[in-house]
Amino acid sequence: MKVIRPLLTKIPKIPRPDVKNRAIKISENAIKKTQTANRFFLEVGEFGLFLWLTIKALFSRHFEFKEFLRQCFLVGNKTLPLISLTGVVIGLVLTIQSRPILAEFGAVSLLPGMVAVSIIREMGPVVTGLICCGKIGSGMGAELGSMKVSEQIDAMEVSSTNPMRFLVVPRVLAATFMIPILVLYADALGILGSWAGANLKGDVTFILFFTQAFNSISFSDFIPAVIKTFFFGAAIGLVGCFKGYTAGRGTASVGKAANQSVVLASVFVIIIDLIAVQITDVLQ
């Protein structure tokens, strides 16, 4: 016995296939994947619930009109300088870049109309929308997120004020109504910028330029473009408020809420744009 023992320990162990561990790993991976999927569906569900609560709060008796006006002012005030700059530059750049191409075909006279149509149909709404995602969406996400983290939303709730009604509804409505106005403003500045661009080479009078521009715009260009901006606004407001409202605990989640608002709102804007294009295409 005494001799055998040390001998036995020297026999090298045959490595057995590690079935158990592999099985555990596979199941862990599967769990992780389902958890990610679950989180996605959970979030979609939460967003749906949030939308429903917002609509319910919207149609409740009390409307916080003062807060709504304050939010409208903030939305406009925050974004006006940036939108003015981008509006003018888009018009200018579009004009300068399309001019040589049109000149090749001898169609420079089409320039004002072409630029105006592309600004009003696409560039104005989408660029303004994306700027608002960055300025307004992130602002709302961060503001509501920090209110959530510092228990201000809870404080509102225990003083019998529905935070959905006081915080969310005015913000969503302000974004819904202000963003179309900002888009129209950006469109106007874009056309102005385009006129300036056209004047760099050759000169066109203001009146002539605008007559040409507006002659080529029809209602069917204008109306769908305006309608979709309302949806942009609603999406930006809703996403910003949703991300802020559902922020976790701790200050880190404020940054996360702001960041995610921008990303998600931008995705929404682009998807809504895509859908809007499809719909107008079918209707025309």
Binding site: S146, M147, S150, E151, Q152, D154, A155, M156, V158
Partner: peptide, 12 residues
């Protein structure tokens, strides 16, 4: 019910 939050929770 009056509720005093540990963090104060004043509206900034």
């Amino acid at each position: 019910i009056g509720f005093l939050f540990q963090s104060g929770a004043l509206y900034d």
